[in-house]
Design a protein around this nucleic acid. Structure first.
Lengths: 354, 354
DNA sequence: TTGAAAGCGCTACCAA
DNA sequence: TTGGTAGCGCTTTCAA
């Protein structure tokens, strides 16, 4: 068997407490005794205090959980999520805390079990729209958490690091509207649960259940309302996932009519890239005349010349982790809205008469 | 205080064992009693068995550690590392295991402490060349581990998922040699520890301490030896990190002479992209005449038209995790060498007379 | 400066 | 089907 602290104590002829002190509180014993103990430990092959036992006793784990409310493996394929994670890992690294990546199962019933089984001191929840069950489980466990968006059901003590989705969306949409576009389509991921890809009837922007999506749609809508384009004149396109392929499919479905939109405003860069794919596929006429905008400003956006809204991804992760690891004294400081910037590139241009 | 299993037992009037069974071994009690217990638990706000206590008792944690032998936050910026991690997470997800990301400190002295403190059942070690200390600590803890390369000091029981670095490197180098290139430069990350960026004197390929680098350099060298170009006629370029900027800097330093290389063979795609940057910067003459090859076949390689060696990144991660989670009955099956493919694109061409 | 005692919260054995 | 007992390996009072 692997040696335990007790074995070391026996070997040296001291008590367990003293061996424990040798590791955790060096000032509690003489340097000579400490050296003797550490030497004996090395000789016996004792690897130092068992982390699990230490956690149990201390009541602290030394790890925070990162919860992606989607396939964990998917999270790594999403550039924005990866950048967020980079920020989280920087903060964790600086704090000497480990990161537990928790894959959330698709079946609701198992969510609770997964969260209850995670040995962590708290959670960073990367919200993609399906986090309610997970948050309920976290609250029930009594663990602290930070989300990447203000939650509709948030109390004053809830912490989050988000952006002003509505204002950010409005900034791109204002730009598009100023270019003269009036026949526009808005492209979002899972605008309504279980809806098929393509055009979708949505009574109002606020009807999209996911707050991020509804916030962005609201901002888009405001900008067009300001130039006289009502909600009912706007096409909403649903993508069945935040992927290039899903974005392309949704847009392709909207291109069949005789009055295709002159601009597509997407809720993410990944979807926007898919929109560009669909337009390229549809032929040079549309590819050159339809404006497309994204959201996030991932690396590929620059390459593709995509007009988009930049949000500080790494910073979001860094702050989220910091908020979790070092709770602010004033709860009000637990609500952070990061600034965003409109980045105008070549994917948007004046509307062309046709 | 948060309720414990004992509190639930008291509330229902049964023993702790019974409550424990209600959670972990439903077949050990009547459905009626189980329901009663679970209801009481819900009423009291008992979140289910404490994961740490359960781990201590069971002797199993339910998480595997992923060790990047570099800044953890760096790992997320490296496309190959991210794809590896994707594979690991897929396997972990399927197995219901959590992933603990362990940031490895730069100071050697703290490596041991970090590893000793990680509550995991084993480690996937993503090798980038500085893993010896970490592996020693893992072995001392008696935990199983899998590496991403065969280790020179590996015993028969050691598990790894790698590629035949020498043969893979030889395949690109043969391609370059067949195109007529004889004045070539090899570009690697930290070929010798603490060496400055730029040309480097290396007595033999095997002198590079990192096995991956020395394996690739050896394969490159073999190909050129076969066409009469000896090691001493080959330039070795050192990059001070696996980044585009470091690759560019190293190549720029090699372009100053009057006899610049006609081909640059890099040990990674990221470095190769840096080489292309440097050549573009140096002007159209060099940019069009110098061939460049990479290694890994990351997504950007296709966009950049980079000739490279493809290795199955996700598969590497998936297998590494699988090898850790379900050790093969026959230790020989613990040594996996994945196939690689030469991918010829536009970054290589026949040598042009100058 | 050192040691004895008392758990942290849980599970697994075995007996009833 | 249920409960009693005995720890898992450690830290932390507190008293010597």
């Amino acid at each position: 068997m692997k040696p335990t602290l007790q074995d070391v104590a026996d070997a040296v002829g001291v008590s367990r407490s003293t061996v424990s002190n040798a590791y955790s509180r060096p000032d509690q014993l003489s340097a000579a005794l400490r050296t003797k103990i550490l030497d004996a430990a090395r000789r016996l092959g004792y690897p130092g205090p068992n982390p699990t036992a230490r956690s149990l006793r201390r009541g602290v784990v030394g790890a925070i959980g990162v919860l992606f409310t989607s396939q964990l493996s998917y999270a790594f394929t999403d550039p924005f999520a990866v950048r967020f994670l980079t920020g989280v890992s920087e903060a964790a690294e600086r704090h000497g805390t480990n990161l537990l990546l928790v894959p959330l199962p698709a079946e609701r019933a198992r969510v609770r079990a997964v969260i209850d089984n995670a040995a962590v001191d708290g959670f960073c929840v990367y919200c993609v729209g399906d986090e309610d069950w997970a948050l309920a489980a976290i609250r029930d466990r009594g663990l602290p958490y930070v989300t990447t968006a203000p939650r509709p059901d948030a109390g004053p003590a809830d912490r989050y690091v988000g952006i002003d989705e509505r204002a950010a969306a409005r900034s791109v949409a204002d730009h598009v509207a100023a270019l003269g576009h009036r026949r526009v389509a808005l492209l979002g991921d899972t605008v309504l649960p279980d809806a098929p890809g393509g055009p979708l009837r949505l009574a109002a922007p606020a009807d999209a259940p996911h707050p991020t999506t509804s916030g962005r749609l609201t901002g888009f809508a405001e900008a067009f309302a300001a130039v006289g384009v009502g909600w009912s004149a706007i096409t909403v396109l649903n993508a069945t996932g935040n992927s290039r392929a899903a974005g392309a499919a949704a847009v392709t479905a909207a291109l069949t009519g005789d009055q295709p939109p002159t601009a597509v405003l997407a809720c993410s860069d990944v979807l926007a890239l898919g929109a560009l794919d669909a337009l390229a596929e549809a032929g040079p006429r549309l590819a050159h005349s339809v404006s497309v905008t994204g959201f996030d400003d991932i690396a590929e956006a620059a390459t593709a010349g995509l007009t988009t809204v930049r949000q500080p991804a790494e910073e979001k992760g860094r702050l989220a982790a910091a908020l979790l690891l070092e709770p602010p004294a004033d709860p009000a400081d637990g609500h952070v809205l990061l600034p965003t910037d409109l980045v105008v590139r070549t994917s948007t241009g004046p509307v062309t008469r046709s």
